[in-house]
């Protein structure tokens, strides 16, 4: 969600440059955490942050070192490399170091930096997955179905157990696709809590209008190089959308198997029925959640 006062970590070893950056960002309404080194920036990542601006050269490393640490802690966090650099400075593994770059020598650079960070902190700026067009509305809809306060697990545990039995597969889960991760409401066959969104298949499923089937993940370019899925022993997938009465897709009910697998039209229809049942349960709990505070009062 977009924070009204996003937190930006500014990493710069030059006191004058750092002061100028902090002044510009603070004046624009950002909360600023100041760090001067790669190790300092790494410590700052324990806080909730929305963006990192780093100088290219630091006393104990480079801006790319900071980038690596940010990606490990917050995969979706936008990072701006702010300084003078050339493509020759890019580490050999270029694909892991994609970054916004702003040369410091341009006129009015801090005005440009502020404008860039305002846009970067609006969401979806540097993420490694496709994002629905109406993502903000989708996230707002999802927030209304936050089930963490409910004793919902048993209902969904039963449902996913039924799905595993019905389709004769390894695993089934009900997953909610949140801003940066997928949260598992229930998962039969594995003990998963969350997975980073860029590693999930469901972040693609929520873009579809019908059940999404991937018969063999190793043959699908979107997932063939996803080590996380390989480590979880996932080879085939079928996912049916969880769509709210208002039309927002907030997650999916999914089948997984360690073998390649196809799904017939009838099986896809059954899976969608299971998903509709899961959505109805979520909707009932959302309504209950709305009524409870009033009744308590």
């Amino acid at each position: 969600m977009v924070d009204s006062h996003p937190t930006v970590v500014s990493v710069d070893g030059d006191p004058d440059e750092q002061a100028a950056t902090v002044d510009a960002l603070s004046a624009a309404g950002f909360e600023v955490i100041q760090e001067t080194t790669v190790s300092g920036a790494t410590s700052a990542l324990s806080s909730e942050i929305d963006c990192v601006v780093t100088a290219t050269t630091l006393p104990d490393g480079t801006g790319f070192d900071v980038l690596e640490r940010v990606r490990a802690a917050y995969a979706d966090c936008p990072v701006v490399l702010f300084g003078e650099a050339s493509p020759a400075d890019v580490p050999a593994d270029s694909q892991s170091h994609i970054v916004e770059y702003l040369p410091r020598s341009i006129p009015g650079v801090r005005e440009r930096l502020v404008s860039l960070i305002k846009d970067a902190t609006m969401g979806g700026y540097q993420v490694a997955y496709p994002v629905p067009e109406d993502e903000q509305a989708r996230l707002e809809a999802l927030a209304a179905y936050d089930v963490t306060d409910f004793t919902t697990a048993e209902t969904f545990d039963r449902l996913t157990k039924l799905v595993v039995s019905h389709f004769d597969i390894d695993k089934a889960f009900v997953g909610l696709v949140d801003e940066h991760e997928e949260r598992f409401v229930a998962c039969e066959g594995a003990d998963w809590q969350t997975v980073a969104r860029e590693d999930t298949i469901c972040t693609h499923t929520i873009l579809e209008h019908e059940v999404m089937v991937v018969e063999d993940l190793t043959e699908d370019p979107r997932f063939a190089s996803n080590d996380q899925l390989r480590e979880l022993d996932v080879r085939s997938y079928a996912g049916a959308q969880l769509t709210t009465p208002g039309g927002q897709t907030i997650g999916a009910l999914c089948c997984l198997d360690s073998e390649t697998r196809s799904y017939t039209t009838e099986e896809c229809q059954d899976l969608q029925l299971f998903a509709d049942e899961a959505m109805e349960q979520l909707e009932l709990r959302r309504r209950l959640n709305e009524r409870l505070p009033q009744e308590t009062a």
């Binding site: 892991s96 994609i98 979806g124 540097q126 993420v127 997955y129 496709p130 994002v131 860029e198 996803n226």
Partner: peptide, 15 residues
């Protein structure tokens, strides 16, 4: 090697 960096690249440039 992996499509995910391409998404990140495209989001960064289009953004």
């Amino acid at each position: 090697d992996d499509i995910r960096p391409v998404y990140r690249f495209l989001h960064t440039v289009t953004g």
